[in-house]
């Protein structure tokens, strides 16, 4: 699974699915745009001194006091919605990636550890993981967000708690399968310390399924974060993610000012759908049962 050749073969096969390729392009573009937000956004949405209430709740295409076109309209504070979305994407993606990375690390380690330790430790860990998997992620995140209070790291903790179990389950499954193979038995019987065997031989072989889970879970993290922010249990107002932008626009929806909620939502969906499409293709390619 390492080395140049399998990777380029993987890419060649990936390239053949045009939908997945387009989705990958979208993901890359969104990432780039979010990264460059301060450079390309027409306005710094956090600079309150620039906001004019006379510009508030204007429809798309309105030319405000800044003298430039608000392509996606403005929100209740007179903020340029396009700028707010670009900055919001930054925050949403950041949250998704950080939470995903931490959940990956904790979950994969726990799962692989359980598979190698065996016995009651394995039974206990996997029991807890299973229990958590059957418990809806949103409830867990909801309770944790409520208990820990508001803030970036509290929210990340809630997201991690809601997602690590998926990684643990996957890593455990893959590691158990690897553990049973002869080469691992052989490696374990050498004087090499077990953690090194795990790092050197097991983890690389568990990576493909974990990567699939990771893609899906980053998308899920972003969606979950948006949901929590929408419910008012997410990030503080000073860091408006896409979910909060949508929530802020909700009250104006009933009076027909759809753009304040709809456009941030569209940005969110484009990102999530694109990530999921890429994840689907990777999963299909890694699934031996679907190969001909």
């Amino acid at each position: 699974m390492t080395g140049e050749a399998p990777l380029s073969a993987f890419w060649l096969e990936f390239r053949r699915n045009r939908v997945a390729l387009a989705a990958l392009g979208v993901v890359a573009t969104v990432l780039l745009v979010a990264l460059l937000a301060p450079l390309i956004a027409p306005q710094d949405p956090y600079d309150l001194s620039r906001l004019r209430l006379t510009d508030a709740r204007r429809p798309p295409g309105f030319i405000g006091s800044g003298g430039y076109v608000h392509w996606l309209g403005t929100d209740a504070q007179g903020r340029d919605l396009l700028s707010a979305i670009l900055y919001g994407l930054r925050i949403s993606i950041q949250m998704g990636l950080i939470a995903g990375a931490i959940a990956f690390t904790i979950g994969a380690t726990l799962g692989a550890f359980a598979a190698f330790r065996g016995g009651w430790v394995e039974a206990l860990i996997m029991r807890v993981v299973d229990l958590q998997l059957s418990f809806p992620a949103i409830l867990l995140a909801l309770v944790l967000a409520a208990l820990l209070g508001q803030g970036k790291w509290q929210l990340i903790a809630a997201l991690v708690a809601a997602q690590y179990a998926y990684f643990a389950r996957t890593a455990h499954g893959a590691a158990s399968a690897e553990r049973a193979k002869d080469y691992v038995e052989a490696a374990l019987s050498t004087p090499l310390p077990t953690p090194r065997v795990v790092m050197r031989h097991i983890l690389p072989n568990c990576l493909p399924p974990l990567i699939v889970v990771a893609t899906v879970q980053v998308a899920n993290s972003i969606a979950l974060e948006a949901t929590l922010s929408f419910l008012g249990l997410g990030l503080p107002v000073s860091e408006p993610s896409l979910g909060m932008l949508i929530a802020n626009g909700f009250q104006f929806m009933l009076s027909g000012r759809y753009w304040i909620s709809i456009y941030p939502g569209l940005a969110l969906i484009i990102l999530i759908v694109a990530i999921n499409l890429v994840g689907d293709q990777i999963r299909d390619q890694l699934n031996p049962r679907l190969r001909r």
Binding site: A223, A226, F230, I246, F250, M253, I262, I272
Partner: peptide, 20 residues
């Protein structure tokens, strides 16, 4: 795929906007 990806709360908003 859309049903899987699109967050429930946003679909709710769109439903309200369109049908209500």
């Amino acid at each position: 795929i859309l049903g899987f990806s699109v967050p429930t709360f946003w679909i709710g908003l769109v439903l309200i906007f369109v049908f209500a």
